[in-house]
Design a protein around this nucleic acid. Structure first.
Lengths: 156, 156
DNA sequence: TTGAATCTTGATAAAAAAGTCAAGATTATA
DNA sequence: TATAATCTTGACTTTTTTATCAAGATTCAA
């Protein structure tokens, strides 16, 4: 199970642009390329996906660049990741069993699909309330939103 | 975020072999190929990974084939998936922040890494108690082990 | 010992993903 | 209008993943 390069870079670009939302500054492809260490061509390609996904607005011309299409707290990370990298488990797979809520072990394939669905549900539960805003600020940190066991550094 | 073909096929092959554990029958590459619709060459390649990972024993010769190296309830799915597909987030990445328990939003890259780690933790929590046995039997179904919201088909 | 059935391994080929390139379109400013 | 800075798009190349192939090694049974 891996994240694609497009998910990694796409999220980084979106966060970068999001950091400038408050000051209403748009970022250009060369600027993002410099910040993130991704080639300009590749940034252009990735931003296209985010723009078509509805997360970014773009403006051409000398004063052009990219801005968020909505405020950071309105942009859900789950939606962004679905656009950038697709989903682990697609519900259309088991359309014939719309009410399915038990694992199907009749075939090995179905066992595996059920497992994928469980994992997908787990990830969805983590992401469903997470917005871009949660990935921006230094005071609002993400781990505090979840029950991640802290390392034993409370005495440091 | 996607599963690799090796994870999908590897798990299917392992489940298939596991179904014959009770009757102490070993399965050959051609048999598994027929059952799962995967080419013999590909089955051989995938089983090699599972064997090197310690989940399968193999025997050559006319009566040869593959068997589980341990009983299904001893084989943890989390270990199998780690061997077949690697991990989403590798702890070695943030070795320099061994005590890190807050999201690092100083750089976009660190925000994203923190997110990957959260997702990895979520998946681990789902998988940590799941064994191959849970994917085999028809009476032991996986969904019942977790709180997956049932569809409204209780009256059907 | 011979042959058939099996697993084992490294090399090769095909497919998919990732990244690059070049030409074009738009906008602001002088 | 002319120029410079920008985004836009489709084609191309490279890299990685996936799948196939071929030769070899092992085991059993006649």
């Amino acid at each position: 199970m891996k994240f694609s390069a497009q998910e990694e870079y796409g999220l980084r670009c979106l966060i970068r642009i999001g950091k400038y939302f408050k000051v209403k500054k748009s970022l250009t492809i060369p600027e993002i390329s410099n910040y993130e260490g991704i080639s300009q061509h590749n940034v252009g390609k990735i931003l296209r996906v985010l723009r078509l996904g509805g997360f970014l607005d773009s403006e051409r011309g000398q004063l052009g660049g990219y801005t968020l299409s909505a405020s950071p707290e309105k942009i859900r990370i789950i939606d962004v990741l679905n656009v950038l990298g697709g989903r682990l488990y697609d519900d259309s797979f088991c359309q014939s069993h719309t009410g399915m809520n038990e694992i199907c072990t009749n075939t090995t394939e179905c066992s595996v699909r059920s497992l994928w669905k469980i994992i997908q549900d787990s990830v969805d539960n983590v992401l469903v309330h997470l917005t871009l805003q949660d990935l921006l600020g230094t005071e609002d940190n993400v781990f505090s939103l979840f029950d991640v066991a802290p390392s034993n550094n409370s005495s440091n």
